[in-house]
Structures are given as C-alpha cells and as structure tokens.
C-alpha cells in the first residue's frame, strides 16, 4: 500500500464517520466542504453516502403514510365502551355504597336500641345500688359515734 493510499484510506474512515452528520447538515461549513470534495473523488465513500441517504429517506416515506380514515370513529367507539363500563362500574359502586350506608344505619339503630335497653338496665341497677348505698350510709350515720369524739 502506497503512502497516498494509506492517507486516502485514513481520510475515507474519517469521512465515513461523518457521513450521517454531513447528511443532516450538522457539520461546520469547512468540514462539510472537505467531505463534499472527498465524495467527488472517492467512489467507495460515495457508495456509503448514497446508501445512507437512501436508508434515511425511508423515514420521510414513513412519515407521510396516510392515516386510516376511521381512526377517530374507532377511537370514539373505544371511548364509548370505556365510558359505559365506567358508568356500570360506578353505578355498581354507588349501589354498594348505598347498601353499605343502609347497613351502617341499620347497625347504628340496632346498637342504639340495644344500648338504650342496656342503659335502662344499668340505670335501674344503679338506682338499687344507690338505694342500698344510701341505706349503708344511713346505717353508718346511725352507728353510735365514738365517745372520745364527742368528748371535746
């Protein structure tokens, strides 16, 4: 391999590394001009450049593909389905809520009634205790006071 060829090869490698940036207009003007000149004189780099250009142009074709005319109507239908499922779910949820609320109220009333009974019982008991206690106290009051306490 001659000196010229080896320099050329090195240039080719560095040019190839820059091709995608050259195509995208990312290179500084001077650098872009060097690549441009190289491409005029080098078949191999030109081959890679042409191939890369063809490949990247596919993206432009991809982008311009026409959208399915029914895109929105399909979407709208999916949304209807979701909303009706959501409504059914929230209706079920509301029913469950109502039942839960009713159950809580019923339990509340039941506990209320039960508690009222209990309180009545307790207060009856308390009254008896009070009476008994009163009697006790009365008994105590009736006990004879120690004579030394009276002595003063």
């Amino acid at each position: 391999m001659s000196k010229y060829q080896s320099i050329n090869k090195m240039n080719c490698n560095s040019v190839k590394q820059k091709l995608i940036f050259y195509l995208d207009g990312d290179l500084a003007v001077d650098e872009a001009n060097l690549v441009k000149c190289h491409l005029v004189n080098c078949g191999e780099c030109r081959f890679y450049y042409t191939e890369l250009k063809k490949s990247l142009s596919i993206i432009e074709t991809d982008k311009s593909k026409e959208i399915d005319g029914k895109f929105y109507s399909k979407l709208s239908k999916r949304l209807d389905d979701i909303e009706s499922t959501h409504e059914t779910t929230s209706l079920k949820y509301k029913l469950v809520q109502v039942f839960a609320y009713a159950a809580v109220v019923a339990i509340g009333i039941f506990i209320g009634l039960f508690a009222e009974n209990e309180i009545n019982n307790i207060s009856e008991n308390k009254n008896t205790e009070f009476v008994e206690q009163t009697i006790v106290w009365n008994d105590f009051n009736q006990e004879p006071i120690e004579s030394f306490l009276i002595a003063e």
Partner: peptide
C-alpha cells in the same frame, strides 16, 4: 375530536418510529 384531528399524525408517527408497524402504531396511538 378537534384535538385528535390536530395531533393524530404526529402521535402515529412517534408510535410508528418506535413500533415500526402501522397497525400496532395506530392501536398504541389510540
């Protein structure tokens, strides 16, 4: 609907860029 009409092309293109299949890209866009 106005929003979909405005952005559908852009969304489908992004989805297609990743998914590389039109049918699936449209499904994901939906």
């Amino acid at each position: 609907q106005l929003l979909v009409e405005k952005y559908q092309q852009m969304i489908i293109n992004v989805c297609y860029g990743f998914i590389q299949n039109y049918q699936d890209a449209e499904d994901v866009a939906q």
